[in-house]
Design a protein around this nucleic acid. Structure first.
Lengths: 229, 229
DNA sequence: CTGTGTGTGACAATTCAAAGACAAATTTTT
DNA sequence: AAAAATTTGTCTTTGAATTGTCACACACAG
C-alpha cells in the first residue's frame, strides 16, 4: 500500500490555508500547513513532502526568497514547488528570474485545476498518478501542458483562448453569459467590454477550425455562448 | 433576466471571496461579492439573490447581526441564508435558530459540500432554478442549455419567446394577466403595451406549432393567457 | 347587431453578433 | 537592448434577427 502524497502548504492566511488543506485532503493528499517561510524551512529540515505549495506573498520571507533558498540546499534542491500568485503580481519574474518553481497557479484559481497541477508535478516522482486532461468530442485539452489537440492535430491557442476554451469544457452544453465568461477566462474583477468576448470567441473558433471540422461553439443570441453537444 | 441562480457572497477577505466566486461560477452560479454588512444590506435593497452566503465574522456588522436584521425586513424575510462559520464559533446559537440562518457550513469546508448545501437550499426555495429541465406534455425546456424541444424536435425561440414560455411553464394551467407576463418575461418595471404581449404570444405559438401539434396556450378572454393542462 | 377584445400581417426601430482593422501591450527572437 | 512577432482590447461597419407598434380583420358575448 502506497502512502498518500504529502503536500506542504506555506500560506499565511489561516482561513485560506485551512480550506485548502481540507479540500486537498478530500482529494487524497496528506497536508501540513505552515504560516511563514521560517517555519517552512524548519519543517523541511526533518520531513520532505512530495510537493510544496508556496504562496508568493509570505510574511518575513517572501515566496521567492524561500524558493531560491530551497534550491541552494542539497536536500531540498529537487523538491517540486508550485507557486500561488495573485494575478498582476509580476509573473515574469517567476520565469525570467529563474526562481526555480516548477509550476505556478494564479489566484483566484479553479480548485480542480490546482489539483491537476499537483498531480502533474507529482507524476514526475510518482508516475502511478497520471496526467489530467479534459476531452470533448474530438477536442483534447491537457490542463498541465496547456496544450490542445483536435482530431489529434495540434491546435495553437493563446493563453486567453486556452482559458476561454477551458471555461466551455468545464460545463459542456451550458450557456455561459459574457459576464460569466469574463469572470472565468479573464478573471474576477477584470474589466473588459462584452464585445471583447465576441472577438475572443471568434479567434478561438477560427483556431479550432484551422484544420476543418464543425464549429463547436454555439452562439445563443441574447444570452452568450455554449459548447455544442 | 438571468437564468442562473444568483448567489450573494458576504465575506471580507478579498482573496477568499474571489476564489469562492470563481469556483461557484464554474459550477453555474452567478455571484456577487460584498465585503461588509452595510454593503450587503444596500445590495439587498435593490436586488434579491437566490441565496446569501454570509461570513460569521464581518467587519462593522457581524454576520449574526446582519442575519437578524434581514429577518426583520419584509422583503428579505424569506431570503435563504447560509452561514460560514469557523469551527468553535458558537454553533449552538445558530442551531437554536436564534439567528435565523437556513443552514451553516463550518470553515474549513469542503468546496463540494458547500455547493451541495447551496443546491439544497435552492431546491427548497426555487425548485425551478435547480432543475435542468422543465417538462410539460411533449414540450421540454432545457434551462442551462437554453434549448426547447417539442416531440423531440428542436424549436427555435428568440430570447423573449424563451422567457415567455418559461413564465408559462413555471405556472402551468394558471391564467396569467398581461401585466404578470410583462413582469415575468420582460422584467419588472419594463414598459410595453398590453397588445405587445398578444403579438409575442402569437409568435411563441407559431414557433411551437412549427412541426404541427395542438395549440398549448389558451386565450382567456378578458384576462390573459394560460398554458393548457 | 354592437362593442370590446384578440388574431394577423406589415413595417420600422432597435438590438445583436460576425468581420475587418488597427493600435497598444506583451512575448519572443535576434 | 532593439526588432519582430504575437496577443489582446477596442472600434467601426455590415447584415441579420428580434422586437414593439400599428391598422385592420375577425370572434365572441351580451
Amino acid at each position: 500500500m502506497v502512502n498518500d502524497p504529502v503536500v506542504l502548504i506555506a500560506e499565511d492566511e489561516i482561513a485560506q490555508a485551512d480550506v485548502l488543506k481540507f479540500n486537498l485532503e478530500a482529494e487524497g493528499f496528506n497536508c501540513h500547513v505552515v504560516h511563514n517561510g521560517a517555519k517552512a524551512l524548519s519543517y523541511l529540515e526533518n520531513d520532505l513532502p512530495d510537493v510544496l505549495l508556496l504562496d508568493w506573498m509570505l510574511p518575513e520571507m517572501s515566496g521567492i526568497q524561500l524558493c531560491q533558498k530551497l534550491r541552494e540546499q542539497d536536500h531540498t534542491k529537487r523538491l517540486p514547488v508550485i507557486m500561488l500568485t495573485a494575478r498582476g503580481e509580476d509573473i515574469d519574474r517567476l520565469r525570467g528570474f529563474e526562481v526555480g518553481a516548477d509550476d505556478y497557479v494564479v489566484k483566484p484559481y479553479l480548485f480542480s485545476e490546482l489539483v491537476a497541477r499537483i498531480r502533474a508535478v507529482l507524476r514526475r516522482s510518482r508516475p502511478e498518478l497520471d496526467d489530467e486532461y479534459i476531452q470533448h468530442k474530438d477536442i483534447k485539452m491537457d490542463l498541465v501542458r496547456q496544450k490542445v489537440t483536435r482530431d489529434d492535430k495540434d491546435i495553437n491557442l493563446s493563453a486567453l483562448e486556452f482559458r476561454l476554451l477551458r471555461s466551455f469544457l468545464a460545463k459542456p452544453g451550458r450557456v455561459l453569459s459574457r459576464d460569466q465568461l469574463i469572470d472565468l477566462a479573464w478573471g474576477t474583477g477584470i474589466h473588459v467590454l462584452d464585445r471583447t468576448v465576441d472577438v475572443s470567441v471568434r479567434r478561438l473558433r477560427s483556431a479550432l477550425n484551422e484544420y476543418g471540422g464543425e464549429d463547436v461553439i454555439r452562439t445563443v443570441r441574447g444570452f452568450g455562448y455554449a459548447l455544442d453537444e
